[in-house]
Design a protein around this nucleic acid. Structure first.
Length: 602
RNA sequence: GGCCCCGUCGUCUAGCCUGGUCCAGGACACCACCCUUUCACGGUGGACACGCGGGUUCGAAUCCCGCCGGGGUCACCA
């Protein structure tokens, strides 16, 4: 009550009674941000925003072997691209603000509460302090079993159909073990599990109980001196004030261990017991075939295609590639590719894999956020789609239908745990594409052009160079509505990327639209060419008007006029609206192409 | 295999807590038709689901039990 009165009398001070919501996303930097991780981050972000709290980012790089700085940076970029801004965490300067959803601060992260570093590898002295504290009280202890011994015991347990649960040996000699440790012999430290069952309430799954005999004396510090995930996560969440932990369901079974640790520990600064945050475990996102979505799926797809094409060696790939350059693939160490072919657990270097994919003509499935970015998806579409994977607002839109299309502002306004689903969901690319197509259609022409330019600068330099933004602007109205992804611009304007004398004619289309009726199509071309030549302005509107007028004068149907022209200038019967098609080619190219068609095909 | 979690159209899901308004609603994909200078967009319509078996009840997608199915996890990875 006192607090309330205080709050009333001092309205400019925050209420001290209810601590602010603090959520965190804590990826391990072993690669680009996985789409499932992005959903977790999104929900953490939305929950913090919803409650005017703070969303922090922490890099869990306690695995020296697998973590890399490049991966850390990549994850920051991925989150920033999505528009999931972190209030605290590694500092990141944003570029290309126009490519993201939210109007953003240009600098993300920071350390306003002085709780960093946000890299666990830089916090080892903190973990050691707590570990020593536990060891002194015999709540944790050094263990000198070799990995080999443990493997043997595990296998034995498996043979006897028991679960292997590590327990401190009955004849454990604390003094002896401690002196070995103090003498500097490397060894892992294990936490001594209290022999009691542990229950907690998961915000999405409900009541969870794990019995004592399922819980082992798990390792909290590895022999290399680094804490394990289990330990570092508990210490950091306390020290950083995390109030709500959202994470993947693969951590559900770890939660009792973490809670046991929390109950054993005391915050050395405040001298208070660790606070136990709320937990929310999110279901996994799977492929259509129910397999877990994994980075390896990309290798799998490429390997399958190789088998289909009977590719057995690097030379077979070069043969398929023809003149296409494969710089990264060619840079692979000798024998690497052949080994990869035969080993399902191997992954090819990212860019080499992409070279391979273009060479053999296979689409790699997008798995990481960055894959989606490079495939030409818009962040707002990705965000909307993944938000719906496991959460829904349970609301009808103005049209009376279930509301599905929304932005992050709406998510923030509505997000709550009780509408997060409990069942695993499959990733449906077709639906994502539909969302993306709609998101693109909603862009203004200028926005579209600007988004495309940013994207193409990184991912389609060829189209950017050969067509360019200024020519694309001529036909943006016609192109935009046909793009499922930004990548589609390329195929939509591909006819304009080939030299006037080099595009191929589709025989069937030539037959149907030009040669039929004793070459009526060619007559149309001959009649139209001088009119196009004489047109004062060669833009979409003028061309369309000319075509209309010609149709009226001749009494021919539009189909009889447009299709021959289309085949003449593009080689086939499919292209953007004809006015746009001619406009992007320009007058000279259009006429040259018509002439070439008459000469070559008549 | 032990433990934990989950189970509504092909897919994402609404409905389940607080049984009847549900012979189950929406979205994506699919099919048909319409519009149309091609392709697409758009419009209209269609097909498609409560895993199975018991119970409780006048009445169950909704409550209870069993079975089956799927997933997760059992590391000095996270």
């Amino acid at each position: 009550m006192t607090t309330c009165l205080h709050a009333l009398s001092l309205p400019f001070l925050p209420m001290p009674s209810s601590p602010p919501v603090i959520t965190r996303f804590a990826p391990s930097p072993t690669g680009h941000l996985h789409i499932g991780g992005a959903r977790t981050a999104l929900f953490c972000w939305a929950y913090a925003k919803r409650h005017n709290g703070s969303f922090l980012l922490r890099i869990e790089d306690t695995d020296q072997k697998r973590s890399s700085e490049a991966a850390s940076r990549g994850i920051l970029e991925d989150l920033a691209w999505l528009g999931i801004d972190w209030d605290e965490g590694p500092v990141f300067k944003r570029e290309n603000a126009d490519g993201t959803v939210n109007t953003p601060p240009t600098t993300l992260g920071g350390n306003p509460r002085e709780i960093g570093s946000f890299y666990q590898s830089e916090r080892r002295d903190i973990y050691d302090t707590y570990i020593n504290w536990l060891v002194e009280r015999d709540l944790a202890y050094p263990a000198f079993d070799t990995p080999e011994e443990l493997t043997v015991r595990r296998q034995l347990a498996e043979k006897e159909k028991r679960t292997f649960v590590y327990r401190r040996a009955a004849d454990y000699n604390r003094d002896a073990v401690l002196s070995r440790m103090n003498a500097g012999e490397p060894c892992p430290i294990r936490f001594k599990m209290p022999g009691t069952p542990i229950s907690f309430t998961d915000e999405v799954l409900g009541e969870i109980t794990v019995s004592a005999d399922e819980l082992d004396d798990f390792v909290i510090r590895k022999a290399d001196g680094f804490p394990t995930y289990h330990f570092a996560v508990v210490i950091d969440d306390e020290l950083m004030g995390t109030t709500h932990i959202m994470r993947g369901q693969e951590h559900l079974n770890n939660t009792p261990r973490h809670i046991a640790l929390m109950k054993a520990l005391v915050n050395q600064t405040t001298n208070q017991p660790f606070r136990i945050p709320k937990f929310a475990h999110l279901t996994v996102i799977a492929n259509q075939d129910n397999s877990k979505m994994s980075k390896r799926d990309r290798d799998k797809a490429a390997r399958a295609k190789c088998r289909e094409l009977n590719i057995k060696a690097v030379t077979d790939v070069s043969a398929k590639a023809g003149t296409k350059p494969l710089p990264h693939f060619d840079a692979l160490p000798p024998g690497d590719f052949e080994q990869w072919l035969g080993d399902k657990t191997r992954q090819l270097e990212t860019h080499a894999l992409e070279d391979l994919a273009t060479a053999i003509g296979v689409e790699l499935p997008e798995i990481a956020v960055d894959d989606f970015r490079r495939s030409g998806y818009l962040p707002e579409a990705v965000l909307n789609y993944i938000a719906l994977l496991g959460w829904n607002p349970g609301e009808k839109g103005p049209d009376g239908k279930d509301l599905e299309r929304f932005d992050t502002a709406y998510l923030v306004e509505k997000f709550s745990f009780d509408r997060v689903g409990k069942s695993a969901s499959k990733f449906d690319r077709a639906k994502l594409i539909a969302f993306n197509q709609d998101a693109i259609a909603k862009l203004t022409d200028d926005q579209f052009l600007s988004r495309w330019e940013i994207w193409a600068t990184r991912d389609d330099r060829e189209t950017l160079g050969r067509v360019g933004v200024s020519r694309l602007r001529l036909v943006v109205g016609a192109i935009k509505g046909r793009c499922r992804t930004l990548k589609d611009v390329r195929s939509l304007v591909s006819f304009a990327m080939i030299d006037d004398g080099a595009y191929a004619f589709n025989a069937k289309d030539v037959e149907k639209h030009l040669k039929a009726d004793d070459g009526a199509g060619f007559e149309t071309l001959r009649a139209l060419a001088p009119k196009l030549q004489a047109l004062p302005a060669f833009d979409v509107a003028s061309i369309d008007a000319l075509l209309d007028a010609h149709a009226t004068q001749t009494g021919l149907g539009m189909g009889k006029i447009a299709q021959p022209l289309r085949v003449a200038v593009t080689g086939a019967a499919v292209s953007p609206p004809l006015g746009a098609t001619l406009a992007i080619l320009g007058r000279d190219s259009s006429l040259a192409r018509i002439r070439r068609c008459i000469d070559a095909q008549a």
